[in-house]
C-alpha cells in the first residue's frame, strides 16, 4: 500500500476539521468559538483544494472566513460576550444532547454499510471541474437565472438587515 501526499493531507485536514469543530461547541468563550469555526472553515477549504475545487476553496475563505465570520466576531465583540456572560445549559441536558448527536452519527454511518463503497476519488488528468473557467461557463449559461435571483436575494437580505437593525 502506498501513501500519497493527498492521503496524508486528507488525514491531517480531517483531524484538524474535526478537532476545531469540537472546540467550537466546547469553548466557553464565544470569541474562541468563532476563531475555532474559522479554523474549521480553513481545513474544509483545504479539503476543497484536495478535491481540486479551487474556486470553491477560495470562495469559501472569502465568503465564510472573510465576511460571515467577521460579522459574527463583530457582533460578539460589540455585545461584549465572554466566558462570564455565557449562558450554560444544565449538565444533563448537555449530556443528552451529546448522546443524541452521537446516535445520529451512528445511525447515519450505519446506513452507509449497505452502500457499495467502490467509488473512489482520484486526481485525474483533465479533472478540472472545479476550476474557475469551467464553473464560470456553467454558472453563466445554464444557471444564469438562479444566479440573478440570488443577487436579488442578497439585495433583499441587505435591505432586511438594515431595516431590522435600524433604531426606531
Amino acid at each position: 500500500m502506498t501513501i500519497t501526499i493527498t492521503q496524508i493531507l486528507f488525514w491531517i485536514l480531517s483531524v484538524a476539521a474535526l478537532f476545531s469543530a469540537l472546540m467550537v461547541i466546547t469553548s466557553k468563550n464565544p470569541v474562541h468559538s468563532v476563531l475555532w469555526l474559522i479554523a474549521t472553515f480553513f481545513s474544509i477549504s483545504g479539503h476543497y483544494i484536495l478535491l481540486s475545487a479551487q474556486f470553491l476553496a477560495v470562495v469559501n475563505i472569502i465568503v465564510y472566513a472573510g465576511a460571515i465570520m467577521v460579522l459574527f466576531l463583530f457582533v460578539i465583540m460589540l455585545m461584549n460576550l465572554n466566558r462570564e456572560t455565557e449562558p450554560q445549559k444544565n449538565r444533563w441536558i448537555k449530556m443528552a444532547g451529546a448522546i443524541a448527536g452521537g446516535c445520529l452519527l451512528l445511525v447515519l454511518v450505519a446506513s452507509l454499510k449497505n452502500v457499495e463503497s467502490a467509488s473512489t476519488i482520484e486526481d485525474v488528468k483533465g479533472g478540472d471541474v472545479g476550476f474557475i473557467k469551467r464553473l464560470g461557463k456553467e454558472l453563466f449559461s445554464t444557471y444564469v437565472v438562479p444566479f440573478e435571483i440570488s443577487s436579488i436575494l442578497f439585495l433583499s437580505a441587505m435591505v432586511g438587515a438594515v431595516v431590522i437593525g435600524k433604531k426606531e
Binding site: 474535526l18 469543530a21 467550537v24 474544509i44 455565557e86 444532547g97 443524541a100 447515519l108
Partner: peptide, 19 residues
C-alpha cells in the same frame, strides 16, 4: 457526517443564540 453531527450537538447543547 461527523461534522454535521458536531453541528447538531452544538445546537442541542448551547444556549447562546450566536453559537
Amino acid at each position: 457526517l461527523a461534522l454535521f453531527s458536531i453541528g447538531i450537538v452544538g445546537v442541542l447543547t448551547r444556549r447562546n443564540a450566536i453559537i
